[in-house]
Nucleic acid binder design. Structure first.
Length: 432
RNA sequence: GAGGCCGUAGCUCAAUGGUAGAGCACCGGGCUGUGGCCCCGGGUGUUGCGGGUUCGAAUCCCGUCGGCCUCCCCA
């Protein structure tokens, strides 16, 4: 094993990737019913985009991005998230003049240079959902509801509330958050000597993040800090109360966590995280919030916005756990063709093409092997049916169709290869 | 970025500083027209990589790459 994959970048073998496909397809079908449109944005963006959107003093930008100079000496960055790129696209294409709301989603890899562990890769996949154009708590309720709809869709999870828990908070608007920040900094400065080293730095550059610190001594201080929700202005308060009211009336359980903050600077008012069981330390499976001013900060018009991202690998772990064989069946061939004479291989080739046109997953082996060896091969590939064509059959214009599970076989007479294929298709389509 | 555990055959794992092994898998045969079962035979290896100590290293030391866990951070 000479060359290993890059740290934190993983291979997806069929039995893994089929789960990814299943989840993505489910999410897509739900998003389409909410009238979200799928888009694709670049994986590489100018570094400045992320500095200006996520925030210069966030951990993501300061120490987690893959940033380098390209051959023209321009600084570029592998996207650590998708929101910034979508905002850039909206501004660059002038989409903010379009009828509102704008509803987009995208899926694909994100890149963060962190120490890998379970549920944390350096290349990881997100389903990113963004809505632009309205400032209404109903949209937040609907967006978070949508996140749950997606998360619980696999196998129609009925007990999803045992797996996923929702935490919400309001960070206030620009006005009241500034007010709060002042009070928070004042309080933290009085207790500066009790804070850890990084928190003392955060105090200067990004004081809200102190609330997210998990070091015990800091926790003691945090427990006594002023709470943002007590500083919300009238409008923000009404907004947040309305959201909770909607949750209560549609039966969405939530935990209000006044210490919940986010690692990206652009969030405002409502933010949320959905945590999942079985994930260990990296338990946030989906998170998002409102970011009304981001578009304006990036040079566009003022356009209220809300969005969230689902971490696909984490979602997969929360759904499948360590079970490995759930989807293997999808990978089995429907039918395996065994041709016993070299001269008949061309017939096998043609039958395979016909069967594939009928949508059957068809495998054929062109090597000269005994019937026994070929059957063993078909068995190992877990083929559901086997078609046997030998000299004897060809002369009598028939073929043998064997049901591998039942262990029985029957003769199928035919006039030409196309009618043979059609007969086979009709015989087995209901058994697959 | 910090700390800890780990890395041996395709997989799961043994081997107390002294000949690199087992089970499963795989390949061949018994068996040239019928899979799964059975029997016989085959070890398929740069012990992650690179140095060092030693008569001798999978084993001890250093470095490095990768995985897992915690911190951190987040999806």
């Amino acid at each position: 094993m000479n060359i290993q994959s890059v740290r934190g970048f993983k291979d997806w073998l069929p039995e893994d990737f089929i789960k990814y496909q299943y989840l993505i397809n489910l999410a897509r079908s739900i998003l389409l019913t909410y009238n979200y449109k799928e888009i694709k944005i670049p994986i590489l963006e100018k570094t400045e985009l992320f500095v200006r959107s996520i925030g210069e003093f966030t951990d993501i930008v300061q120490k987690e991005t893959y940033t380098f100079q390209d051959r023209n000496k321009e600084f570029v960055t592998l996207r650590p998230e998708a929101t910034a790129g979508i905002c850039r696209m909206i501004i660059e294409k002038g989409l903010f003049v379009n009828p509102k709301p704008l509803k987009f989603f995208t899926t694909g890899p994100m890149f963060r240079h962190e120490r890998p562990q379970k549920g944390r890769l350096r290349e990881f996949y997100q389903i990113d959902v963004e809505l632009f154009g309205e400032l209404n708590p109903y949209l937040e309720a609907e967006t978070i509801y949508l996140a749950f709809e997606i998360l619980k869709a696999p196998f129609n999870l009925k007990n999803y509330s045992e797996i996923y828990t929702l935490e919400i908070n309001s960070l206030g608007c620009l006005k009241c958050r500034a007010e709060y920040k002042k009070e928070l900094v004042k309080f933290l400065k009085e207790n500066k000597d009790k804070l850890c080293h990084t928190c003392q730095e955060r105090l200067e550059k990004n004081p809200l993040r102190v609330l997210d610190c998990k070091i015990k001594t800091c926790n003691d201080v945090i427990a006594k800090t002023p709470i943002i929700t007590e500083y919300l202005c009238k409008e923000c308060k009404i907004h947040f109360e309305k959201l909770k009211e909607i949750f209560n009336s549609i039966g969405i359980k939530y935990v209000e966590n006044p210490r919940l903050v986010r690692g990206l600077d652009y969030y405002i008012r409502t933010i949320f995280e959905i945590k999942a069981k079985g994930l260990g330390a990296q338990d946030t499976v989906a998170a998002g919030g409102r970011y009304d001013y981001l578009l304006k900060e990036l040079g566009g018009d003022y356009l209220p916005a809300i969005g969230f991202a689902i971490g696909v690998e984490r979602w997969a772990i929360s759904i499948f756990g360590d079970k490995k064989e759930k989807f293997l069946q999808e990978l089995f061939p429907d039918i395996f063709l065994i041709v016993l004479e070299d001269e008949l291989l061309i017939k096998g080739f043609q039958i395979a093409q016909f069967l594939r046109k009928y949508g059957l997953k068809c495998e054929i082996n062109y090597e000269k092997k005994s019937l026994k060896a070929q059957l063993r091969n078909a068995d190992k590939l877990l083929a559901k049916f086997v078609l046997i064509l030998g000299e004897k059959e060809w002369k009598e214009k028939k073929a043998l169709l064997k049901d591998m599970k039942k262990g029985v076989q029957e003769e199928i007479k035919f006039e030409n290869l196309e009618t043979l294929s059609y007969k086979i298709y009709n015989k087995i389509k209901n058994e697959l």
